[in-house]
Amino acid sequence: MTAAVQPTDTRVPPPTSDPDRPRRISAPASPADRAFRGVLRAAGLSVFVLMGLIAFFLLLRGTEALRAVGWSFLGEQNWRTAAHTFGIAAVLPNGILIALIALCIAVPVSLTAALFISEYAPVRLRPTLVSLVDLMAAIPSIVYGLWGLFFLQPRFVGLCRWLANHLGGPLPFLRVRGGDTPTSYTSSTFIAGTVVSLMIIPIITSLSREVFSQAPAGEREGAYALGSTRWGMVRTVVLPFGRGGVIGAVMLGFGRAMGETIAVALIISPVFRVAWHVLENGGGSISALIALRFSESDGLSLSALMAAGLVLFALTLLVNVAAGFVISRSRSGASTSD
């Protein structure tokens, strides 16, 4: 400390030759710099341009279908493009159902896993655990789909049957109609949601872990000094600090779950009515619809898929931008964004 003080003592006071008019300092940018800034700005604006182009082209290509059926695109449940009766009133709620089920499973698991990594795991293991969560995010969705279809589903039927038989009475959405064959429990919204939950767990976990680990050390130590246990500290310091970030992370997870394509398309057997009975065979989502119907589509049916893609795009963009704002407004996110 003393060594740092000394130079300031020996500093010469600035010369006071012209005290009333400070010299204006201006740094004219060289041509290279101006060009460079132009390039930077163009790259930044390219994001806007790209998003605009995506919306524009989806709208352009979807116009034909939207014009053909008008507003009933939002109200029609069927998807029969040849008969001009198609709409997203079934696939959109079904996709949201899948995402909600995924959230129900993913949120508790990822929050406790994030707490585990940031608070409970041995310090030496933490970087490895963070890498593993990242690895889980990098596992291709088709691998999740294969795993869900061939490994999870056969072993999950027993649990689904139990849920349907015993909780189906008080909770009608768990009922399964139409016979107790093994296939009546497969390819359901619930199983698709379970697989999607595994795919959004890494996203929610790593974002929450990031905000949890930023909880100020002073407040943590204060809680400990007041005699708190570790869980007490987590409950009173870490969780309140990370609340905004966690809400944002959950919303981002929801957006991902809405857009998840391949795993859902592999598992679900598409039906075009709202699948309230989540354990029952059949379900769907916009992205799975596009992936499954794309190869046999042209003209009007392709245009209809484009229109559905536009709805999905708008919805996920809305959710994601809202999540971004929630994160940047929160106390924990404010320090990360800038």
């Binding site: 989806l58 981002l252 957006g255 809405m258 857009g259 893609g309 795009f313 996920t316 994601n320």
Partner: peptide, 9 residues
């Protein structure tokens, strides 16, 4: 938001 753009889109 774009990082979470649905890949099918």
């Amino acid at each position: 938001a774009m990082t979470a753009l649905p890949s099918i889109v």
